[in-house]
Design a protein around this nucleic acid. Structure first.
Ligand SMILES: [Mn+2]
Ligand SMILES: [Mn+2]
Ligand SMILES: [Zn+2]
Ligand SMILES: [Zn+2]
Lengths: 138, 138
DNA sequence: ATTTCGCATGCAACTTTGTTGCAAAAAGAT
DNA sequence: ATCTTTTTGCAACAAAGTTGCATGCGAAAT
Protein backbone atom coordinates (compact mmCIF):
# COMPACT_ATOMS: atom_id res chain seq x y z
CA UNK A 1 0.00 0.00 0.00
CA UNK A 2 2.73 2.41 1.04
CA UNK A 3 4.51 1.62 -2.21
CA UNK A 4 1.33 2.00 -4.24
CA UNK A 5 0.69 5.40 -2.74
CA UNK A 6 4.17 6.62 -3.50
CA UNK A 7 3.88 5.39 -7.02
CA UNK A 8 0.63 7.20 -7.69
CA UNK A 9 2.05 10.46 -6.39
CA UNK A 10 5.32 10.11 -8.31
CA UNK A 11 3.53 9.17 -11.49
CA UNK A 12 1.65 12.43 -11.25
CA UNK A 13 4.73 14.49 -10.47
CA UNK A 14 3.55 15.34 -7.00
CA UNK A 15 5.91 15.55 -4.10
CA UNK A 16 5.26 12.92 -1.49
CA UNK A 17 4.00 14.62 1.63
CA UNK A 18 2.28 13.48 4.78
CA UNK A 19 -1.15 14.80 3.98
CA UNK A 20 -1.17 13.55 0.43
CA UNK A 21 -0.11 10.10 1.53
CA UNK A 22 -2.74 9.97 4.25
CA UNK A 23 -5.60 11.21 2.09
CA UNK A 24 -4.69 8.89 -0.73
CA UNK A 25 -4.56 6.07 1.78
CA UNK A 26 -8.10 6.89 2.89
CA UNK A 27 -9.33 6.62 -0.68
CA UNK A 28 -7.52 3.34 -1.23
CA UNK A 29 -8.93 1.86 1.95
CA UNK A 30 -12.54 2.89 1.47
CA UNK A 31 -13.78 1.35 -1.72
CA UNK A 32 -16.46 4.01 -1.84
CA UNK A 33 -16.50 7.73 -2.28
CA UNK A 34 -15.55 10.32 0.31
CA UNK A 35 -16.81 13.80 0.95
CA UNK A 36 -14.55 16.56 2.11
CA UNK A 37 -16.13 16.26 5.54
CA UNK A 38 -15.42 12.53 5.76
CA UNK A 39 -11.76 13.16 5.17
CA UNK A 40 -11.61 15.91 7.74
CA UNK A 41 -13.16 13.60 10.30
CA UNK A 42 -10.91 10.66 9.53
CA UNK A 43 -7.72 12.66 9.58
CA UNK A 44 -8.73 14.24 12.85
CA UNK A 45 -6.58 17.14 13.88
CA UNK A 46 -3.70 15.89 11.82
CA UNK A 47 -4.04 18.34 8.96
CA UNK A 48 -5.45 21.75 8.48
CA UNK A 49 -8.81 22.06 6.78
CA UNK A 50 -7.24 24.16 4.10
CA UNK A 51 -4.73 21.46 3.30
CA UNK A 52 -7.52 18.99 2.71
CA UNK A 53 -9.22 21.39 0.32
CA UNK A 54 -6.02 21.97 -1.56
CA UNK A 55 -5.05 18.32 -1.68
CA UNK A 56 -8.42 17.32 -3.10
CA UNK A 57 -8.14 20.11 -5.64
CA UNK A 58 -4.70 18.88 -6.68
CA UNK A 59 -5.78 15.26 -6.95
CA UNK A 60 -8.73 16.36 -9.04
CA UNK A 61 -6.58 18.32 -11.44
CA UNK A 62 -4.14 15.46 -11.81
CA UNK A 63 -6.90 13.00 -12.52
CA UNK A 64 -6.26 10.91 -9.43
CA UNK A 65 -9.81 11.37 -8.19
CA UNK A 66 -13.07 12.38 -9.80
CA UNK A 67 -16.20 14.02 -8.49
CA UNK A 68 -19.64 12.54 -8.14
CA UNK A 69 -22.58 14.91 -8.25
CA UNK A 70 -25.11 14.83 -5.44
CA UNK A 71 -28.35 16.60 -4.68
CA UNK A 72 -27.43 17.72 -1.24
CA UNK A 73 -24.88 20.46 -1.50
CA UNK A 74 -22.01 18.12 -1.07
CA UNK A 75 -19.48 16.83 -3.53
CA UNK A 76 -18.20 13.31 -3.36
CA UNK A 77 -14.77 12.24 -4.51
CA UNK A 78 -13.59 8.82 -5.58
CA UNK A 79 -10.46 7.32 -7.02
CA UNK A 80 -10.37 7.20 -10.76
CA UNK A 81 -10.35 3.59 -11.81
CA UNK A 82 -9.51 4.11 -15.43
CA UNK A 83 -6.42 5.85 -16.60
CA UNK A 84 -7.50 9.41 -16.18
CA UNK A 85 -4.99 12.10 -16.88
CA UNK A 86 -4.58 15.75 -16.17
CA UNK A 87 -7.66 17.54 -17.42
CA UNK A 88 -9.04 14.50 -19.16
CA UNK A 89 -11.29 12.29 -17.10
CA UNK A 90 -13.22 9.41 -18.51
CA UNK A 91 -14.99 7.73 -15.68
CA UNK A 92 -18.02 6.85 -17.65
CA UNK A 93 -19.40 4.55 -15.03
CA UNK A 94 -22.54 4.66 -12.94
CA UNK A 95 -22.44 5.66 -9.28
CA UNK A 96 -24.67 4.17 -6.66
CA UNK A 97 -25.60 5.95 -3.45
CA UNK A 98 -27.15 3.86 -0.69
CA UNK A 99 -29.96 5.67 1.05
CA UNK A 100 -29.47 3.70 4.24
CA UNK A 101 -25.74 3.50 4.91
CA UNK A 102 -25.00 6.53 2.71
CA UNK A 103 -22.09 4.79 1.06
CA UNK A 104 -21.36 5.73 -2.50
CA UNK A 105 -19.99 3.05 -4.73
CA UNK A 106 -18.32 3.32 -8.12
CA UNK A 107 -19.89 0.72 -10.36
CA UNK A 108 -16.83 0.59 -12.55
CA UNK A 109 -18.30 -2.14 -14.71
CA UNK A 110 -21.60 -0.44 -15.37
CA UNK A 111 -21.11 1.94 -18.23
CA UNK A 112 -23.36 4.92 -18.71
CA UNK A 113 -25.70 4.26 -21.58
CA UNK A 114 -25.77 6.75 -24.40
CA UNK A 115 -28.88 8.85 -24.88
CA UNK A 116 -30.06 10.71 -27.90
CA UNK A 117 -30.38 14.40 -27.19
CA UNK A 118 -32.62 16.82 -29.05
CA UNK A 119 -30.96 18.62 -31.95
CA UNK A 120 -28.59 21.39 -31.06
CA UNK A 121 -27.19 20.01 -27.84
CA UNK A 122 -23.53 19.09 -27.94
CA UNK A 123 -22.85 16.68 -25.12
CA UNK A 124 -19.45 16.46 -23.53
CA UNK A 125 -19.76 14.53 -20.31
CA UNK A 126 -22.36 12.13 -18.95
CA UNK A 127 -23.05 11.42 -15.30
CA UNK A 128 -25.43 8.88 -13.91
CA UNK A 129 -26.25 8.47 -10.25
CA UNK A 130 -28.54 5.78 -8.91
CA UNK A 131 -29.84 5.87 -5.38
CA UNK A 132 -31.35 2.94 -3.56
CA UNK A 133 -30.23 0.19 -1.22
CA UNK A 134 -26.88 -1.50 -1.43
CA UNK A 135 -26.39 -5.22 -1.09
CA UNK A 136 -25.53 -4.97 2.59
CA UNK A 137 -28.51 -2.79 3.51
CA UNK A 138 -31.43 -4.23 1.57
CA UNK B 1 -49.57 33.39 -15.10
CA UNK B 2 -50.93 34.93 -11.92
CA UNK B 3 -53.79 32.47 -12.06
CA UNK B 4 -51.50 29.56 -12.77
CA UNK B 5 -49.36 30.43 -9.78
CA UNK B 6 -52.34 30.62 -7.47
CA UNK B 7 -53.61 27.32 -8.73
CA UNK B 8 -50.33 25.52 -8.09
CA UNK B 9 -50.15 26.82 -4.56
CA UNK B 10 -53.80 26.04 -3.80
CA UNK B 11 -53.53 22.58 -5.28
CA UNK B 12 -50.73 21.90 -2.82
CA UNK B 13 -52.56 23.34 0.15
CA UNK B 14 -50.15 26.18 0.54
CA UNK B 15 -51.25 29.63 1.53
CA UNK B 16 -50.67 32.19 -1.17
CA UNK B 17 -48.00 34.56 0.03
CA UNK B 18 -45.82 37.15 -1.62
CA UNK B 19 -42.60 35.21 -1.54
CA UNK B 20 -44.13 31.97 -2.73
CA UNK B 21 -45.81 33.73 -5.62
CA UNK B 22 -42.63 35.50 -6.61
CA UNK B 23 -40.36 32.46 -6.42
CA UNK B 24 -42.84 30.32 -8.30
CA UNK B 25 -43.04 33.04 -10.92
CA UNK B 26 -39.27 32.94 -11.34
CA UNK B 27 -39.40 29.22 -12.00
CA UNK B 28 -42.24 29.60 -14.49
CA UNK B 29 -40.44 32.36 -16.35
CA UNK B 30 -37.03 30.70 -16.58
CA UNK B 31 -37.43 27.47 -18.46
CA UNK B 32 -34.24 26.26 -16.86
CA UNK B 33 -33.18 25.42 -13.38
CA UNK B 34 -32.37 27.87 -10.61
CA UNK B 35 -29.91 27.73 -7.77
CA UNK B 36 -30.68 29.22 -4.42
CA UNK B 37 -28.28 32.04 -5.24
CA UNK B 38 -30.03 32.86 -8.49
CA UNK B 39 -33.29 33.34 -6.67
CA UNK B 40 -31.73 35.52 -4.04
CA UNK B 41 -30.26 37.74 -6.71
CA UNK B 42 -33.44 38.00 -8.72
CA UNK B 43 -35.64 38.78 -5.76
CA UNK B 44 -33.16 41.38 -4.59
CA UNK B 45 -33.86 42.72 -1.15
CA UNK B 46 -37.46 41.76 -1.35
CA UNK B 47 -37.30 38.68 0.83
CA UNK B 48 -35.10 37.43 3.56
CA UNK B 49 -32.54 34.77 2.70
CA UNK B 50 -34.12 32.47 5.21
CA UNK B 51 -37.48 32.77 3.52
CA UNK B 52 -35.98 31.64 0.24
CA UNK B 53 -34.45 28.60 1.93
CA UNK B 54 -37.73 27.72 3.56
CA UNK B 55 -39.79 28.30 0.44
CA UNK B 56 -37.56 26.03 -1.64
CA UNK B 57 -37.76 23.42 1.08
CA UNK B 58 -41.53 23.60 1.08
CA UNK B 59 -41.81 23.41 -2.71
CA UNK B 60 -39.52 20.42 -2.65
CA UNK B 61 -41.56 18.60 -0.07
CA UNK B 62 -44.77 19.28 -1.95
CA UNK B 63 -43.31 18.04 -5.20
CA UNK B 64 -43.58 21.39 -6.95
CA UNK B 65 -39.88 21.44 -7.72
CA UNK B 66 -37.17 18.82 -7.86
CA UNK B 67 -33.43 18.94 -7.37
CA UNK B 68 -30.73 18.36 -9.93
CA UNK B 69 -27.39 17.07 -8.69
CA UNK B 70 -24.26 18.96 -9.62
CA UNK B 71 -20.58 18.47 -9.03
CA UNK B 72 -19.89 21.89 -7.66
CA UNK B 73 -21.42 22.12 -4.24
CA UNK B 74 -24.57 23.70 -5.51
CA UNK B 75 -28.03 22.30 -5.83
CA UNK B 76 -30.23 23.26 -8.72
CA UNK B 77 -33.99 23.33 -8.55
CA UNK B 78 -36.46 23.05 -11.38
CA UNK B 79 -40.21 22.80 -11.74
CA UNK B 80 -41.54 19.29 -11.83
CA UNK B 81 -43.04 18.72 -15.23
CA UNK B 82 -44.84 15.51 -14.46
CA UNK B 83 -47.39 15.15 -11.75
CA UNK B 84 -45.15 14.82 -8.79
CA UNK B 85 -46.72 14.59 -5.42
CA UNK B 86 -45.67 14.98 -1.84
CA UNK B 87 -42.76 12.65 -1.25
CA UNK B 88 -43.10 10.92 -4.57
CA UNK B 89 -41.18 12.44 -7.42
CA UNK B 90 -40.88 10.87 -10.80
CA UNK B 91 -38.85 13.18 -12.94
CA UNK B 92 -37.11 10.51 -14.84
CA UNK B 93 -35.76 12.86 -17.44
CA UNK B 94 -32.24 13.85 -18.36
CA UNK B 95 -30.83 17.21 -17.34
CA UNK B 96 -28.45 19.20 -19.47
CA UNK B 97 -26.03 21.74 -18.07
CA UNK B 98 -24.38 24.12 -20.52
CA UNK B 99 -20.73 24.71 -19.70
CA UNK B 100 -20.73 28.10 -21.35
CA UNK B 101 -23.92 29.89 -20.35
CA UNK B 102 -24.36 27.69 -17.27
CA UNK B 103 -28.05 27.21 -17.97
CA UNK B 104 -29.56 23.96 -16.88
CA UNK B 105 -32.34 22.56 -18.98
CA UNK B 106 -34.84 19.84 -18.17
CA UNK B 107 -34.98 17.55 -21.17
CA UNK B 108 -38.46 16.42 -20.31
CA UNK B 109 -38.71 14.26 -23.40
CA UNK B 110 -35.45 12.43 -22.89
CA UNK B 111 -36.09 9.58 -20.53
CA UNK B 112 -33.30 8.09 -18.48
CA UNK B 113 -32.37 4.72 -19.92
CA UNK B 114 -32.45 1.77 -17.59
CA UNK B 115 -29.19 0.13 -16.63
CA UNK B 116 -28.53 -3.33 -15.30
CA UNK B 117 -26.91 -3.17 -11.89
CA UNK B 118 -24.77 -5.89 -10.34
CA UNK B 119 -26.64 -8.33 -8.13
CA UNK B 120 -27.65 -7.06 -4.73
CA UNK B 121 -28.26 -3.45 -5.55
CA UNK B 122 -31.86 -2.31 -5.23
CA UNK B 123 -32.28 0.84 -7.28
CA UNK B 124 -34.87 3.40 -6.37
CA UNK B 125 -34.12 6.56 -8.26
CA UNK B 126 -32.09 7.35 -11.35
CA UNK B 127 -30.48 10.66 -12.18
CA UNK B 128 -28.66 11.55 -15.36
CA UNK B 129 -26.89 14.80 -15.97
CA UNK B 130 -25.22 15.70 -19.24
CA UNK B 131 -22.89 18.63 -19.54
CA UNK B 132 -21.83 20.24 -22.78
CA UNK B 133 -22.91 23.09 -25.00
CA UNK B 134 -26.50 24.12 -25.51
CA UNK B 135 -27.96 25.02 -28.87
CA UNK B 136 -27.45 28.72 -28.31
CA UNK B 137 -23.83 28.42 -27.22
CA UNK B 138 -22.30 25.87 -29.55
C1' DA C 1 -66.39 43.31 7.73
C1' DT C 2 -64.19 41.84 11.88
C1' DT C 3 -62.13 38.64 14.69
C1' DT C 4 -59.45 34.69 15.46
C1' DC C 5 -55.91 31.27 14.76
C1' DG C 6 -52.18 29.15 12.73
C1' DC C 7 -48.79 29.39 9.39
C1' DA C 8 -45.20 32.19 7.21
C1' DT C 9 -41.84 35.71 7.56
C1' DG C 10 -37.99 38.62 9.20
C1' DC C 11 -34.47 39.27 12.22
C1' DA C 12 -30.64 38.07 15.02
C1' DA C 13 -27.39 35.04 16.34
C1' DC C 14 -24.93 31.28 15.23
C1' DT C 15 -22.58 27.23 12.80
C1' DT C 16 -20.59 25.31 8.96
C1' DT C 17 -18.23 25.51 4.73
C1' DG C 18 -15.09 27.42 1.54
C1' DT C 19 -11.39 31.12 0.11
C1' DT C 20 -7.12 33.96 0.21
C1' DG C 21 -2.49 35.94 1.52
C1' DC C 22 1.49 35.17 3.69
C1' DA C 23 5.22 33.35 6.53
C1' DA C 24 7.21 29.01 8.14
C1' DA C 25 8.27 24.29 7.14
C1' DA C 26 9.18 20.48 4.42
C1' DA C 27 10.56 18.21 -0.16
C1' DG C 28 13.33 17.65 -3.82
C1' DA C 29 17.40 19.02 -6.40
C1' DT C 30 22.35 20.16 -6.59
C1' DA D 1 24.78 20.33 3.57
C1' DT D 2 22.83 24.01 1.07
C1' DC D 3 19.73 26.02 -1.96
C1' DT D 4 15.24 26.37 -4.37
C1' DT D 5 10.62 25.34 -4.95
C1' DT D 6 6.51 23.54 -3.29
C1' DT D 7 3.46 22.60 0.39
C1' DT D 8 1.54 23.59 4.70
C1' DG D 9 -0.62 26.02 8.72
C1' DC D 10 -2.44 29.99 10.46
C1' DA D 11 -5.27 33.90 10.51
C1' DA D 12 -8.61 36.49 8.73
C1' DC D 13 -12.27 36.60 5.94
C1' DA D 14 -16.46 35.55 2.96
C1' DA D 15 -20.17 32.81 1.79
C1' DA D 16 -23.65 29.51 2.74
C1' DG D 17 -26.88 27.37 5.67
C1' DT D 18 -29.45 26.73 10.33
C1' DT D 19 -32.30 27.76 14.41
C1' DG D 20 -35.36 30.15 17.85
C1' DC D 21 -38.48 33.47 18.55
C1' DA D 22 -41.48 37.52 18.15
C1' DT D 23 -44.29 39.74 14.76
C1' DG D 24 -47.23 39.90 10.66
C1' DC D 25 -50.19 38.14 7.38
C1' DG D 26 -53.54 34.81 5.05
C1' DA D 27 -57.47 32.07 5.37
C1' DA D 28 -61.21 30.69 7.60
C1' DA D 29 -64.89 31.35 11.00
C1' DT D 30 -68.12 34.42 12.99
MN1 LIG E 1 -16.48 6.57 -9.80
MN1 LIG F 1 -36.03 18.45 -14.49
ZN1 LIG G 1 -25.98 0.61 2.15
ZN1 LIG H 1 -25.49 27.55 -23.18
Amino acid sequence: MEAQIDEILRKNQLSVTGSRKRILELFLMSNGALAHGDIEKKTGEKFDRVTVYRTLQTFLEKGIIHTIPTSDNSVLYALCKDNCSEGHHHDDHVHFICQKCAKTICLADVHIPQVKLPGGFLPHDYQMVVTGLCAACR
